[in-house]
Nucleic acid binder design. Structure first.
Lengths: 349, 349
DNA sequence: ATCCCCTCGGAGAGCGCTCTCCTCAGTGGC
DNA sequence: GCCACTGAGGAGAGCGCTCTCCGAGGGGAT
């Protein structure tokens, strides 16, 4: 059992309670409670007087006590793989904004992309009696089903890594977006296009891979298994993957990377090898991280509407909380952003 | 009065309480409470039996109820200017990690760098009865003093924009770091060094400016007011500021930017003007954002130990919570990271 | 046997709210 | 004058914990 405890030494002095306001205003505590929540059951002037006194005394209602009494806390829990990931940060931004607009506060915790830790964090959210939970890149999608039924606490997954296993989610249209990106390369005249995937077998990777293959197929281009390499989702992995491509008898003229961080590594490693992007090799990423526009050359990539996805997740949660049988799985389209890392292949290659 | 409310329709079913476990285990609720917090007042086997039953029934203690009873919640509130800022994201990472290690959960909210909103957010944290608060780039430092005494809730500021006005803070050594950065340029042989500051008059800007002047002075270089321009902290502002420098009769050979985002704009605008960095102009930033190593050319900059600063802030909070009269103001040194955006000036300039 | 202490566990108050159930005037209808 | 009704506000239980105060039983020591 993991209970939330701390050996705090300092005991704060009692804070003002509703009863203190009551005696000051010479009414009962019930009336104060009602006045403070603008109940029509209390006369206008009485309410105003009470509100005035409360304000003056610097009274802050305890959300804790209210939560206990009402059985809901106006809080939601957000679990992310890591906060430092710029991709994730924007999603959080979208969630927090929408949450705040509706009077909700958000608990933030990171799972370090570790399923065990993810579960632990969610448990701690349960103990905190959050009203809802949003999880990005969940590693354990299916495990939330019992939680939904047992605890009746709605959960929305963003870019769930095990789709089809859970009811409420917001996803990017991986297949379509990556097909579009690959089509873009094909339209430029590329025929030898490498795919840089991920080594952990995530759903997002395999869907993007499928889109890549679909585009090749519809263009009548052969699929060449040696053109598929794997990274770790970070730039280091991208660099290592390029080395495998460099060892090939014939270099691909373009590389489609399943995310921007990998693409950054690709860019760097190609430059190290004395190759110029896009003259020698074209590179496409996926995500449209903030830095994609600042790297050299600015990266052609697929934009995920990260902020919007956060908002959508929170909106789904809100309608779920309002009792709606909300839409099950929301898919948002990606958008191809063409910058300067792609160009037609050189004639001689 | 801003009370936290929502018109949630769905009323969750009652969850398991300590009493349910008590009847199942045929003991009193007090014993369950004690067993669950590993009190020595209950016999080992009884405790284990209770823990087992609780586990089996999927019981989750209510942190809400506990918070009400104990008068502390094991939560802290973090207010940031904006979550999407990569600078801030890393700080949050440091805070969250340390908090979590000590059994604290963190509430996250953003102030949009708006002082009014900052206060609102802090109020909502008060209502939630957080045990402590961390604020980054506070706009209202001094206002927290009454809060400290009235509410007895410790507050730590990170990079407070009104230093000297508040007791607990973690700050980067702006002056020293920017002096070092300027010295680096001087050592390379630069004599006409521009300073790109901020237009809002933040403390961090003026301290960095002071460091710049100090370095000039100690090298016996004249301070030239026309070499000082102002941006908005973002790349757009950096670009606009460069235009003023381009209009000068003689271009500076180096630009020291008070943050990386501005420097990115400088890089871009100089390239647009057909100038090459660092051959024609050297550029130095401040922050060492993640993307500083990926831009073109990789940016020489001052690293702020962002994650560490978050940790330090949280550690300060923890010792404050433990009743210690913790160190008042912590200053951490910046570190100059020399990359490829700086070089000796061209002979002919 | 008496007394004391020590261990284990129960009873119940209290944390600060909400909300139901009452009470008490005042008012209007007949 | 009686009753019903309405509007305003009080009393108090209850939310799910913690923790103090007790009590019961079981040894020693005297």
């Amino acid at each position: 059992m993991n209970t939330i405890r701390t050996a705090s030494v300092c005991s704060k002095p009692r804070q003002l309670s509703i009863r203190d306001i009551a005696t000051a205003a010479e009414v009962s505590h019930s009336t104060v409670s009602r006045a403070l929540q603008h109940s029509p059951l209390v006369k206008r002037e009485t309410a105003e007087k009470i509100q005035h006194i409360a304000e003056e005394m610097g009274y802050r209602a305890s959300a804790i006590a209210r939560g206990l009494a009402t059985n809901h806390t106006s809080t939601i829990g957000v679990v992310v793989t890591t906060i430092a990931d710029p991709f994730v940060a924007e999603i959080i931004g979208g969630i927090e904004e929408t949450a705040n607009d509706h009077g909700y506060s958000v608990f933030l915790a990171n799972s370090n992309a570790d399923s065990e830790r993810e579960i632990k964090v969610v448990h701690s959210f349960e103990e905190r009696r959050v009203d809802g939970i949003v999880v990005t890149s969940s590693r354990v999608g299916a495990l939330y089903t019992p939680m939904l039924s047992r605890m009746h606490i709605p959960i929305v997954l963003i870019n769930n890594q095990h789709p089809g296993e859970f009811v409420h989610s917001v996803m990017i249209a991986n297949l379509e977006a990556s097909r579009d990106a690959t089509r873009h390369l094909i339209a430029l005249g590329h025929k030898r296009i490498a795919y840089l995937g991920d080594q952990y077998g995530y759903q997002s990777d395999s869907e993007r891979f499928a889109g890549y293959r679909e585009a090749l197929a519809e263009a009548g281009l052969p699929f060449q298994p040696e053109m598929v390499v794997h990274g770790d989702g970070k730039s280091e992995g991208g660099m290592r993957a390029v080395e495998k491509l460099l060892a090939l008898p014939q270099l691909p003229t373009a590389v489609f990377c399943y995310n921007d961080m990998s693409a950054l590594g690709v860019l760097r490693r190609l430059q190290l090898a004395g190759l110029e992007v896009p003259r020698d090799v074209s590179v496409v990423g996926f995500d449209d991280l903030f830095l994609a526009q600042f790297c050299h050359p600015p990266l052609t990539t697929v934009r995920q509407p990260k902020r919007r996805m956060g908002q959508l997740a929170m909106e789904t949660l809100l309608s779920l909380l309002a009792g709606a049988e909300s839409e099950e799985n929301i898919t948002v389209p990606g958008e191809l952003i063409v910058r300067e890392s792609t160009a037609p292949p050189r004639e001689d290659r």
